[in-house]
């Protein structure tokens, strides 16, 4: 066998073994790399509820309630809302400033802990989808959806 072909065989077999190992490792680690859980996943597993976790989903329509509270002589906004994945939902409590993109029926990821079935968020991150369009087209889409629905 030529030296060139021998090197080709050695390198290909080494790479194949290496990638196989990586795939195995990856399949085992997959669970640990999730950035957030959906409300359904939270409902199914009762064990992780005492530690700090992240929950992501859609803000339910009409669920956002804001109130002003006083704490340490500072006016703070307390926000109640519900996160849903259209099967299960989680009630969230948050005190602080929301990101600009936080809206009803938009994606959101919250970080915090569970206390008495209510999620106390310490951080709220807005998540947006892969659709990009000008406002006029979005408006037209909404109108069309409404017409189709009625």
């Amino acid at each position: 066998m030529k030296a060139k072909n021998k090197r080709l065989m050695i390198i290909i077999s080494l790479l194949a073994t290496f990638f196989l190992g990586c795939i195995l490792l990856f399949l085992n680690l997959r669970e640990n790399l999730i950035y957030f859980y959906s409300p359904t996943e939270i409902n199914e597993s009762k064990t992780t509820k005492t530690e700090k976790i992240r929950v992501g989903g859609m803000v339910s329509k009409g669920s956002v309630k804001r109130e002003l509270i006083m704490r340490d002589n500072e006016k703070l906004e307390k926000i109640n809302f519900e996160i849903t994945d259209f099967e299960n939902s989680v009630q969230v409590n948050y005190i602080g400033i929301l990101p600009d993109l936080f809206k009803e029926e938009q994606g959101v990821v919250v970080e915090g802990i569970f206390k008495n079935q209510i999620f106390l968020a310490s951080k709220v991150l807005a998540k947006h989808d892969e659709n990009y369009m000008p406002p006029e087209i979005k408006k037209m889409q909404l109108l069309k959806d409404n017409n189709d629905g009625s």
């Binding site: 997959r30 999730i34 950035y35 957030f36 992501g56 998540k127 989808d129 892969e130 990009y132």
Partner: peptide
């Protein structure tokens, strides 16, 4: 696609 990420999927 594999995980829940904050980053949006491919457009």
């Amino acid at each position: 696609d594999w995980w829940n990420t904050l980053h949006q999927p491919a457009s």
